[in-house]
């Protein structure tokens, strides 16, 4: 049994399209030189541990936003880390306020393949009163034209936690 002859194309995009249906295709360049393309799938499930960051993600499931405070210099991290970046001392867990302000923002109209179907989405860095560093999150219920630096925002939590950073997001603050 021999298979049907492979499609030959001078267009790279056509080769890419053929691959998904036929598994192999030939690209022909301007000088007539041929390159054989095959489809080579690659999928893997990682057994990922949040390790020392685990209490943060478990906290989200309880609708708590947890940062960390250095036991040496008292620097307060809006995104927790186990040891201080300035003095190297261990940090302790602290609850962050559930409202803050937009430090900076963007609206993504494209994204990585994994997030393309979610576009457009807003990314924000949130600053909190009394906290020295920021938290990266999404801003929902708000269009590109309404977002501004300094905008008051408040946290929302997923009713069904997926144990991901996406279990928390922000929306425009209801009270000023």
């Amino acid at each position: 049994m021999s298979r049907a002859p492979l499609t030959k194309s001078r267009k790279f995009t056509e080769v890419q399209q053929r691959l998904s249906s036929e598994g192999a295709a030939i690209f022909v360049d301007r000088e007539g030189k041929e390159a054989l393309y095959v489809l080579s799938p690659y999928r893997i499930d990682y057994v990922h541990s949040y390790a020392e960051d685990s209490p943060f993600f478990l906290g989200l499931a309880e609708h708590r936003l947890r940062g960390s405070r250095c036991t040496g210099c008292a620097y307060v991290y809006g995104t927790p880390r186990g040891h201080c970046q300035f003095c190297g001392e261990p940090t302790e867990w602290v609850d962050l306020p559930l409202s803050g302000k937009v430090h900076s923002w963007t609206t993504c109209h494209f994204g990585s393949e994994a997030f393309l179907k979610e576009t457009p989405y807003n990314l924000v860095l949130v600053e909190f009163e009394g906290v020295n560093s920021l938290l990266f999150s999404r801003l929902k219920d708000c269009g590109e034209k309404d977002i501004y630096v300094g905008m008051p925002v408040e946290a929302r939590f997923a009713p069904e936690p997926k144990f991901s950073i996406t279990d928390v997001w922000f929306v425009p603050a209801t009270k000023k």
């Binding site: 949040y50 960051d53 993504c108 994204g111 990585s112 990314l123 950073i165 996406t166």
Partner: peptide
């Protein structure tokens, strides 16, 4: 853990940075 799952996209990160730069 903290960045990629939000919609990991470098153009988005740079857009955030320049919005603050402009501010």
């Amino acid at each position: 853990n903290f960045d990629f799952p939000l919609g990991g996209f470098y153009t988005g990160y740079y857009a955030l940075m320049v919005n603050r730069h402009i501010y």
